[in-house]
């Protein structure tokens, strides 16, 4: 009996170690959307786009929206922009839109040249403090919300740089598309790889 107990103990320890090692390699299953009953409506706003057109978030009802708060001075935001351009191109026909809200204090004089330099293919609005307050202050950028077709926040907001596949799996889930293996199980690249230590 004591031998059996000992074996059981060893097996449990081995299982725990295995689980622990899986966690350390950061192979994780992508998060699932919140149940619909738990989703909160994304606060509505009206902002101008680069053409001077007034845009309401509620105009996007019926579409899955990646709502990204960013700024021209934000390095991690710049890393995400090519991903969003790719998502916009790939999923627009499925009823998906990227909406970027710039939080630049200098306004369009800073943002328009940036849009041109980065050839951004999705709509950019100019944010303000009122919208920032509606979304929790937005002192840290990028901050991104994935909204379902009813304009509700479907996932826990992403504050800071996250993995491209996190976005991909969330978008695909809301669009009802079959998730790729890469988005179901992905190995998170260590942030240290993106941000190496300063050169000595």
């Amino acid at each position: 009996m004591s031998v059996w107990k000992g074996s059981l103990g060893l097996s449990l320890t081995a299982a725990l170690l295995l689980l622990s090692s899986c966690t350390q390699t950061q192979e994780v299953r992508a998060a699932s959307a919140k149940p619909e009953s738990e989703r909160k409506a994304a606060p509505d706003f009206k902002l101008k786009d680069a053409d001077g057109q007034t845009v309401s978030l509620s105009d996007y009802r019926g579409k899955v929206v990646l709502l990204n708060f960013w700024a021209t001075w934000c390095g991690p935001c710049a890393l995400e922009i090519p991903w969003f351009e790719e998502f916009e191109q790939q999923y627009k026909s499925h009823g998906f839109e990227v909406l970027g809200v710039s939080m630049d204090d200098d306004g369009w004089s800073a943002v328009k040249p940036y849009i041109a330099a980065h050839k951004m293919n999705y709509r950019i609005l100019l944010g303000n403090d009122s919208v920032a307050q509606l979304y929790g202050g937005l002192d840290a950028l990028p901050t991104t919300f994935i909204l379902d077709r009813e304009g509700r926040i479907a996932f826990t907001p992403h504050v800071g740089l996250v993995n491209k596949d996190d976005y991909l799996s969330e978008i695909q889930e809301l669009l009802g598309l079959k998730r790729t293996n890469a988005s179901l199980f992905r190995v998170r690249p260590p942030l240290a790889a993106l941000f190496p230590r300063p050169a000595e």
Partner: peptide
């Protein structure tokens, strides 16, 4: 204007 490894903060 400050940042850390994952995010930047408003000026």
């Amino acid at each position: 204007q400050a940042c850390n490894n994952e995010m930047c903060f408003r000026p």
